[in-house]
Structure formats: C-alpha cells, structure tokens
Amino acid sequence: MSRRIAVEINGRAVEGEVEPRLLLADFIRDNAGLTGTHLGCEHGVCGACTVQLDGHPVRSCLMFAVQAHGHRIATVEGMAPGDSSLHPLQQAFHECHALQCGFCTPGILMTMEAFLREEPDPTSERIRSALAGNLCRCTGYQNIITAVRLAADRLQNKGEAAVEAS
C-alpha cells in the first residue's frame, strides 16, 4: 500500500515509493539521505527537525512524507551557496559561538532563515520570541540571538551574502 511521491528538496527532484505512515523527517533523512535534519522529540516541541515547505518552516516530524507530494522542501544542506562558503546565518552562528553540540542548530537555522525573510530587521526581543519554538540544551540562547542579529545586519547589506571559508 505504498504510494509514489515526488518532491523537490533543495532544488533537486526526489521521488520515492513510501508507506503512507512514513514521516517526512524519515523520508528526508533515509530516502533522500539528507541527515542534517535531526529528530529531537518526534512530537513537534523541540524544533530540531524544522525544514521549510514552500518557504515556510514546518516540523518534519509532524508531517507524513505523502503530504509533501508536489511541494518544495528546503533543508539545512541547501543553505550554504557552495562547498567552501557559508550562508550569512551559518557564518554568524560560527562567529558568535551560537552552537555547542550542534544538534539543534539545523532546525534553528531553518526557522531563523524564514524569520529573517519575514522580518529583515528584528529587535533582539523579536528574535527571542521567534526562537521560542526551538529548544537548545547547550547554549542558553544568548549567543543565538546575537548571531541572528548579526546575520540580519549582514543580510541587509547584500554585498556580503555568502562568506568564504576562512
């Protein structure tokens, strides 16, 4: 009783024969082989599995793969413009020590990338509130807020879109 689905992940067409109950997160990780999307709770609270569906952040543990049929998915692997460069948000996380173990980081990056498109110039308080749906057990969030603010500054000065590897 499996179903055929076709999605676009990070600009690449991905097809699969899946059981209806297969989680989108498992499809992304196991079928598409993109393991940057992590599962932290599988009940929609921690946000580690956040990906973007047609540009909007969603919890891939709360969707079935079949529901994503025909949609466009973005994951953390698609953020950096190239092998030797980082997206400004990724670079800001690196520079501001906004990650320790890094397990929650992909979900936070996907949430914040969408947030900065909606709100390119947020206050720290707005960032704090937008971040509240993602759990991080290591950092205490302070440096993440600083990093998002730094990335917002850089993204507004478009000249610095991608930062070359140091």
Partner: peptide, 21 residues
C-alpha cells in the same frame, strides 16, 4: 584567546555525523 571553533563547520552545514546519521 577565543579562536573560532574547530567543531562548527560541519555542524552548521548539516554535515555532522550523529549516531542516527
């Protein structure tokens, strides 16, 4: 001093290898 971490690059790119990966 506080150099940038050696650990970060794969982790921010989603290229880490946690056990489930």
């Amino acid at each position: 001093t506080s150099p940038l971490r050696k650990e970060d690059w794969p982790l921010v790119r989603g290229e880490g290898t946690f056990v489930a990966d």
